[in-house]
Nucleic acid binder design. Structure first.
Lengths: 190, 190
DNA sequence: GCATTAATTGACCAATCAGTCAATTTCAAC
DNA sequence: GTTGAAATTGACTGATTGGTCAATTAATGC
């Protein structure tokens, strides 16, 4: 069963390089070298570069869907729920940096392809339902559109998890910022 | 003075292609073709691909600093200030899509280079001062760290301006969402 | 053990890559 | 009008690109 093994090796090497350097920035030669397989083997197993890219993307989608950040219980007070949600989301992004990078590459250099949609929006619906629940409890302002709340919260979480270097070179005390976010979101939605 | 003209043509074509396809995804041949100049002329005017990239980046930084989104007056009530700030920022991003794309390319494929820092953080200080002012007025909670406020607001604005397709395929009524953001931020910071 | 299928190899391809260079043209100053 | 410098050209390079293909090797089913 060396076949599946090498195919896996190629896929892993391709993933490493694609995530790091993107589609255009990665060559088949580099992938072969990293995977320590013959150049032509890649084409035998994955037809061409496009297909290999899609295979890598699919493997990331799969990983994302498997280890999907489960929603915290909605039985607890809203603040606890929100805190757990934010922490869990940030941890998820931190633990799976490939996903965010792949999404970014896709948006920049492969925005035309929609065959496999690699987005963060797949779990939106369960988030919406959770917020609706807290609106019925009276812990969240019932006049607010749940869809807006989700985008609002996700924006903040997304930047907190990975992106804040865009806005400030250094953000002293990241943990304090996360706490800040949770408290401000609660206040905003209450 | 055809010289400066062709140099400008090359720079504009390079910018168009770099912004669209990134560094690795753009070839000198493509640039020459688009600029309708001889291939070798590019090297005469810009030495090599790296230098050309830096020149493009610098031209974008220049444009950004010139047409920098001025801070709204802090003489008005906080809500009006905040609303103007958000609208202005979003409009700025929408009117200058090259800037955001270039920042994204830089972060993905050229994270090593810091010669010219193309960031959104250059105006952070004036934002901080504005928020401090409203904290003294009592319109913004004085216990909140101004640095945190800036990152918090910028996260929301950034996504509202360009990014929300990451989270939801379609966000019905974007204007309503912007209003939603302003109101929620005000509540969060009050 | 034999036949069939799949995995693996290395040689090869045309196209494209960034970059060089000598020769020529253009232009401006005197 | 001559001269010197800069702009422009086209031919060229060696390396790399994605991809093919026939031949060889290894694994599998019977």
């Amino acid at each position: 069963m060396s076949s599946e093994n090498t195919k896996e090796k190629i896929l892993l090497s391709a993933r490493k390089l694609f995530v790091e350097y993107g589609f255009a920035g990665t060559s088949m030669g580099q992938i072969a070298k990293l995977a320590q397989v013959n150049h032509s083997l890649i084409f035998h197993h994955f037809e061409n570069k496009e297909k290999l890219w899609l295979a890598v993307k699919q493997s990331i989608v799969k990983e994302k869907n498997q280890q999907s950040k489960m929603l915290p219980s909605t039985d607890q007070p809203f603040y606890d729920f929100l805190y757990a949600l934010v922490i869990k989301s940030i941890k998820f992004y931190r633990d799976h940096p490939d996903i965010m990078r792949m999404i970014s590459w896709q948006r920049l250099e492969r925005s035309h392809e929609e065959v496999i949609s690699l987005t963060l929006s797949s779990e939106t619906q369960s988030w919406i339902n959770a917020f609706k629940h807290y609106q019925q409890c009276g812990e969240v302002n019932p006049q607010l559109k749940p869809e807006f709340i989700v985008v609002f919260v996700l924006s903040i979480v997304h930047v907190a998890a990975s992106d804040h270097t865009v806005f400030t070179q250094t953000l002293a005390n990241e943990d304090a910022y996360i706490l800040f976010c949770v408290e401000r979101i609660q206040k905003a939605l209450g």
